[in-house]
Design a protein around this nucleic acid. Structure first.
Lengths: 340, 340
DNA sequence: TGTTAGCACTCCAAAAGAGTGAGTGCTAAA
DNA sequence: TTTAGCACTCACTCTTTTGGAGTGCTAACA
């Protein structure tokens, strides 16, 4: 068990390290106004904290640096839930006051602002298909055999696909087809569309459409639509501002990893409610083992539908970042529930 | 005027430098199989080439490095139009064979592949508004006062905007409104939409819509739509692989510049036909003065509508890059003209 | 007259050495 | 239990040394 004084020293040390990114020595701590014991005493305490695994040394005669265990303890026990600075609040208000016309823009802007406020990279996952339902399908001919199929979801997202109209079906029939789709699929969750079409609609087609086989293939083609998660990045290159990434090689490994959708999915998959902090080695993904990842969930009708996250060095401004993510994720939840 | 031998030596030196990124000395050149004069002779020629400004030294006793003038000469006179390697051709074919469903995806994928083939950053400008016309407008209610307005253009692009429906107008009237818009605006170039609405449509509204003032405001709101150029990036972080960007500071300056839309517009504005190479200091933008930029234009109905470009170090694999851009831009032109 | 071998010279880069300072652990006294 | 004191460690920085790749110039050669 840690003594009161050890807790205090650990906190002071981590705060100092997060700010200055330089190993912290006993003298530095003893010189603080609110510290009333000598550097020698602190040295003893530091040695104990190191034995317990909360601190590390970069070499035998260097100051101490928080270990991952130290950060974990810091996040779990020493972090008083801070109130956002007025500047931060102002920025977030601005973001949500501005009436953003397209849903996509909301995500883009949020990701951007989040990364600008923190100087870390932000990753936002758009609403998951699971909870969103289909609102409307529209087929707009472009001339020739070409057309655009447009899908609107209950969360206001718009997806579009180019399609080639099948030769053997008359224009009126295609119109009828789209009508059938709208009548039967509106309100169906996106994830269930495929099944619903296969189970129920083929029968309807058989009744109303002449060349129903070709129609079926056409429908299949339209719905071969990837309803996978949309990923929005902000400040992908903010890492370059962090002293721990002064080495180009490191940045490269990290950025290359973030290009991979599978990596992102792996990182952000666990859709816990609330805020999750993952520190260094705790991460699933090799390439981000020297980073910390903070995730916050936002929801729609009470269910988790997406994730807002920040990725930065293990030495992160946890206090502020957690406050920010908490606020923004709540705003997201409000926004979605109010709008749709 | 350069002698035959000087031309040859210049070419060999630049080719070598592009490949190895290390100052090239007289001995290196003389050791090549196809070179039949001694290093001393080459030294004399190199000194002459340096006097003429085609080469530079990094310090008094170093090998030579091409100057920007050298690269310019190389690009203008020494570059035999190379045929793409079969591997490159194969990759491009793959890209255009795959039937890409959404127009956006074509750009995204092209940018990605281009950067992967070259290890440089690619920037593609989507079709300009000037040449595209409106194909269809659709208003899809989401419930409550919310709706999504969808625009489809003649090049198959789909844009969407969230709008709040005006309180004072009945749903049937809104339907009528949209019909009027479609009847009058289909085929009108995007750039002229605003004017057309102001000049002609307000009269029509006055005739058919009761609360025409509120309707006008609503229309204005819908069309407050940014038809600015769409920018697609590929391999934004490929710079990290280039030895000249081993310094994080340099990468940061460049990447930060590329985040600015104004910078991109400045870089890619001149919409010349064909291929343009801009080397180092020739660039308008400060931050890319140590880079080369290669642009290729693609067109629709014979008119330039967009640009495909690559940005990399001044030491660039010009030969290959030019061939690639040429081929891809032509494929783009074909694609657009065939599709729409 | 153009080409080449030879040599002195230059300068970078990597290695080796010396000095500095921030930090530690340990001991002994308060 | 706390603190002062001291020897010791190790990363950094600054210099110095050394090796090598490259140059320019000169003189000899075909």
């Amino acid at each position: 068990m840690l003594s009161e004084r050890q807790l205090f020293i650990l906190q002071v040390l981590i705060d100092d390290y997060i700010q200055h990114v330089e190993p912290v020595g006993s003298r530095t701590i003893s010189k603080r106004e609110d510290v009333h014991f000598s550097s020698a005493t602190i040295r003893n305490e530091l040695a104990d904290l190191e034995d317990m695994g909360y601190l590390e040394k970069t070499h035998t005669s260097s100051g101490r640096v928080p270990s991952e265990k130290g950060y974990r303890f810091y996040v779990d026990h020493l972090l008083s839930p801070t109130i956002l600075s007025t500047a931060d609040i102002y920025n977030i208000q601005e973001l949500f006051n501005e009436k953003l016309a397209e849903t996509e823009r909301i995500f883009e802007q949020s990701a951007k602002i989040l990364s600008e406020l923190t100087n870390y990279t932000s990753i936002i996952l758009g609403p998951e298909a699971l909870e969103t339902t289909l609102k409307h399908i529209q087929l707009i001919p472009l001339g020739g055999q070409q057309a655009v199929a447009i899908f609107v979801t209950s969360t206001g997202q718009v997806e579009n696909r180019h399609v080639t109209l099948p030769g053997g079906i008359a224009p009126e029939e295609i119109e009828a087809l789209v009508n059938i789709l709208n009548e039967n699929l509106t309100g169906v969750p996106l994830a269930e569309l495929h099944q619903k079409i296969r189970d129920e609609l083929n029968l309807v087609f058989r009744k109303h459409i002449n060349n129903h086989q070709q129609a079926s293939m056409f429908i299949d083609d339209i719905f071969k639509w990837s309803n996978k998660d949309k990923i929005f990045f902000g400040g992908k290159t903010k890492m370059l501002y962090q002293p721990e990434f002064r080495d180009v090689e490191k940045v490269r490994i990290l950025l290359d990893a973030l290009e991979e959708k599978t990596v992102i999915e792996q990182l952000l998959s666990a859709n816990n409610e609330g805020i999750t902090v993952t520190i260094g080695q705790e991460n699933q993904v090799e390439a981000v083992r020297n980073c910390s990842l903070i995730k916050a969930s936002y929801s729609f009708h009470g269910k988790h539908i997406g994730t807002i996250s920040l990725i930065g060095p293990t030495r992160m401004e946890y206090k502020r970042v957690i406050g920010l993510l908490d606020t923004i994720s709540k705003e997201f939840t409000n926004l979605f529930n109010a709008r749709y």
